[in-house]
């Protein structure tokens, strides 16, 4: 029994199914990547798991509980956290305030959680009183990750965390994601940089035109000739 699982996800916009029968599973302390060509439905699948997209069929389970009918906000309360691809920080708030907003649902003392985040992302401790909008791309991404982690989530979903950043920053971000995994969090991410993503992933799914095409461990997917040719650029 996996910690988080989504089965037979089918749905789309305006009657057209963008995803059909997709299944994903992720366990605590595991990084799972969802890969695939443009338009394969990767981000749509993630939205479906978050409850932003209404499903025709399918079910989403978290820790043995059916959360398919829950609204996005309730899924967040249940322990899922999400970092969107763009607009993933509050640009007009300070870095520290971003973290505080991340823990909005937590009524208790959050200072210890904030200092944990400062340990995890040292750079944002330095910038804590600066407006988040004034930071560089890589720093913003770290703030976005930290904000999402403030809720103490069990499942963290990332939509293309490395989109539009330089290779150096990409490595840095993946480094952070590996650190997050160590906190026994289930990490599920959609990625364009497939090869690098599989490098840090325990398992991966490859979507093609809205369906699961391949799945397996990171090593298996990287080493399979056919997959490498078709999806990983040779």
């Amino acid at each position: 029994m996996m910690y988080f699982s989504a089965k037979n996800l089918t749905g789309g916009y305006g009657g057209v199914n963008i995803i059909e029968g997709c299944c994903f599973e992720v366990n605590q302390g595991e990084i799972v990547s969802i890969l695939g060509p443009n338009g394969a439905g990767k981000s749509t699948a993630m939205k479906a798991m978050l409850g932003i997209l209404d499903l025709k069929y399918g079910e989403v389970m978290l820790d043995g509980q059916d959360i398919t009918r829950l609204k996005t906000q309730d899924r967040i309360k249940a322990g899922i956290s999400f970092v969107p691809q763009t607009n993933n920080i509050f640009t007009e708030l300070t870095v520290k305030e971003n973290l505080e907003m991340g823990a909005f649902l937590n009524d208790g003392d959050i200072s210890s959680r904030i200092s944990e985040m400062y340990d995890l992302f040292p750079i944002i401790k330095e910038k804590q009183d600066q407006l988040a909008g004034e930071l560089s791309g890589g720093q913003r991404q770290q703030v976005a990750l930290a904000r999402a982690l403030m809720t103490n989530p069990k499942v963290l979903m990332l939509d293309e965390p490395t989109a539009g950043v330089s290779p150096v920053v990409m490595d840095e971000i993946f480094e952070h994601i590996l650190n997050i995994k160590k906190q026994n969090i289930a990490v599920l991410m959609v990625e364009q940089n497939a090869r690098q993503a599989l490098g840090i992933s325990d398992r991966g799914y490859i979507l093609v035109t809205g369906r699961n095409a391949y799945e397996g461990s990171g090593d298996y997917l990287i080493n399979d000739n056919e997959i490498r040719k078709s999806f990983l650029g040779g």
Binding site: F90, E92, F104, T151
Partner: peptide, 19 residues
């Protein structure tokens, strides 16, 4: 702060659990 957050980025405010 949550008012400011909502004003700045509505979608993210919702994702942070702001009502």
């Amino acid at each position: 702060k949550s008012m400011r957050a909502y004003s700045d980025n509505e979608d993210l405010a919702l994702l942070s659990g702001i009502d």
